[in-house]
Design a protein around this nucleic acid. Structure first.
Length: 559
RNA sequence: UGGGGCGUCGCCAAGCGGUAAGGCACCGGAUUUUGAUUCCGGCAUUCCCAGGUUCGAUCCCUGGCGCCCCAGCCA
């Protein structure tokens, strides 16, 4: 693999903070973490977080942990744990021996909850969820203290122990921190610390009947792991005072700091777990790895190189203002990477036969075609020329539109790596559908794009010999939605589904060398785009290609 | 309407009191057997608005305006 394209490293507020912390000696080294809850599959938004956390650790000589924030067994599954690990690896990051689970700290967390009770800073709540909500007040009105808030310490201790022992059913009691029911910050109005859940946990099984809430687990876990910079998204900002309250009131071994950045929003797609889930459940997409989805498994199956996803994450930067990134930036990163690395090949997606009448029946020739026009070290391959060849329907127009410089009747065109040919006639069936084209070639035109009389041929088209072409299915993917922001409120996002987000072409003719296409290799089908074998459906003699992304097409854009 | 945060080119984003980096997009032009690539050139007298402080402000102060987040026993 070629070396990673060095992305211009622009400064950002996190780098500035870390620089200062290191310079001032506040930290000798940095420790970050990527802390997904294993309740679903990762998507490109997570990739941003992964690149930030692992990238910062890499750039500043620190380390980054992979931590499963598994505090809610009702939503988590082993399948997600496995998928997440695989996706992080695919993205090219390595947590080494630093794989952790919040649930590994359940004993410690429980001890700390007991400690808070003993300090008179936590109490067992008997009010139900609905009552708790009512007592919490509103954004503009202070809450009301629960009648159980002044429960004696001994009673709290006893009740909490019995909650842990599984004596009470789900939802009957919770443990709450005693902070301030009148706080303008809702998170400080006696937040719930523990709830009762009698559901087996994917990592710790059925040892626990009570589970800590995110707020009671995250900061403490950061402290236990020695995280120096706990980086999360903006919506956790109002949790920071709580995060710090626990660090202040518990005998934690370290003092991590939380920093927030703006999460990634991408146009023409949806990112919320709920919507992604619905697309899968409704069968609108084929699964979590559908190549049109922004999931990491989807992008991977689509053929996006992980290096391109990484450079995308570098390029969009990290800030604190809400932003919408246009998907075209992601696509451009993919093109940039693939242009340099992908071997070229010729593939006719919508074949029409062109018969070269002045080329002898039965004769063939082998031409040499470079695998990459700018990189001779990538070698070359031989392609077969014969009397009958396939060309793309898009490259022929009986009545050419203005500016069209491909094949027309009476017009000439250069066959890439081959001869100049002229089309002389069209054969149609009764319905007026084109059956085949007839034409002639210029034997002296193997090299260059000039005719014998010195004219320069404007068009160059791809083609494949009918003699040895291989058949394949090619899937052309496009954006899943036709609106830049299908996720906007008020309207059902499914209204914006792009009806042509996938086109399956089953009768494609590819150059013979593609019969040996390799799984991990991305090819450029010249003049069309980048393609790779579908990792799921290709194999055992069946060729199925996915279009990763088209080539830039200023001609099509102009039309 | 309580609290917190954000507002620099079409989209991101540097800048942190000394006179607007970069990327993507876009527009020209050159090279090209991919209408691709590459290459050159252009692209914010101006930083949400209005006042103020200062020799000097995108950066400081005041007041507006706009957008986002918080009322899960989700994370």
């Amino acid at each position: 693999m070629p070396e990673e394209i060095a992305a211009p490293v622009t400064n950002n507020f996190l780098r500035t903070i870390i620089d200062e912390d290191l310079k001032s000696g506040k930290h000798a080294g940095i420790v970050t973490r990527f802390p997904p809850e294993p309740n679903g599959y990762l998507h490109i938004g997570h990739a941003k977080s992964i690149c930030i956390n692992f990238g910062l650790a890499r750039d500043f000589g620190g380390r980054c942990h992979l931590r499963f924030d598994d505090t809610n067994p009702a939503k988590e599954e082993q399948e997600y744990i496995d998928s997440i690990k695989e996706s992080v690896r695919w993205l090219g990051f390595d947590w080494g021996k630093h794989l952790y689970y919040a649930s590994d700290n359940f004993d410690q967390l429980y001890q700390w909850a007991v400690y808070l009770i003993e300090q008179g800073k936590a109490y067992v709540e008997d009010l139900n969820a609905e009552q708790i909500r009512a007592y919490r007040g509103t954004l503009t009105e202070p809450g009301t203290e629960s009648p159980f808030r002044s429960r004696p310490v001994a009673e709290n201790s006893d009740l909490f122990r019995r909650m842990k022992d599984g004596e009470f059913p789900d939802g009957t009691r919770v443990l709450r921190a005693k902070i301030d029911m009148a706080s303008p910050n809702m998170n400080l109005r006696d937040p719930v610390l523990y709830r009762i859940i009698h559901t087996p946990h994917p990592h710790v099984g059925d040892t626990w009947k009570i589970y800590p809430m995110y707020d009671f687990a995250h900061g403490q876990t950061d402290a236990i792991e020695g995280i120096t910079h706990s980086i999360c998204t903006l919506e956790f900002e109002s949790h920071k005072p709580l995060y710090e309250w626990f660090l202040d009131n518990l005998p934690v071994p370290a003092r991590p700091r939380q920093y927030e950045f703006a999460r990634l929003n991408l146009t023409y797609t949806v990112m919320s777990k709920r919507k992604l889930q619905e697309l899968v459940r409704l069968g609108i997409v084929s699964g979590w790895d559908d190549p049109r989805l922004p999931t990491l498994e989807g992008l991977r199956r689509r053929g996006y190189p992980s290096a391109a996803v990484r450079s995308f994450c570098e390029q969009i930067g990290v800030g604190r203002s809400d932003s919408w990134i246009d998907v075209s930036i992601l696509e451009e990163c993919v093109r940039t990477h693939l242009n340099e690395t992908a071997p070229r090949a010729m593939a006719v997606l919508r074949p029409i036969k062109l018969v070269i009448d002045n080329y002898p029946v039965g004769q063939t020739e082998e031409f040499t075609a470079a695998n990459h026009p700018q990189r001779p070290e990538m070698g070359s391959r031989s392609i077969l020329f014969s009397r009958e060849i396939w060309i793309d329907a898009d490259d022929f127009m009986e009545v050419p539109s203005k500016g069209f410089h491909r094949l027309t009747i009476g017009g000439e065109v250069k066959l890439r790596s081959g001869y100049i040919v002229t089309c002389l006639s069209v054969v149609k069936d009764g319905d007026g559908e084109i059956i085949e084209l007839h034409g002639e070639y210029d034997p002296a035109s193997r090299e260059g794009i000039h005719t014998a009389d010195g004219r320069k041929v404007k068009g160059v088209i791809h083609w494949v010999s009918a003699e040895n072409a291989v058949n394949a299915e090619v899937r052309l993917f496009d954006r899943l939605f036709s609106d830049p922001n299908p996720d906007r409120g008020g309207i059902d996002y499914k209204q914006f589904l792009n009806p042509d987000s996938v086109q399956i072409l089953t009768d494609c003719r590819l150059e013979a060398s593609l019969a040996d296409a390799v799984d991990e290799t991305r090819y450029q089908f010249e003049r069309q785009g980048y393609f790779c074998l579908d990792p799921k459906d290709a194999g055992s003699g069946t060729l199925v290609f996915n279009r990763i992304v088209t080539l830039r097409d200023t001609w099509a854009a102009k039309k």
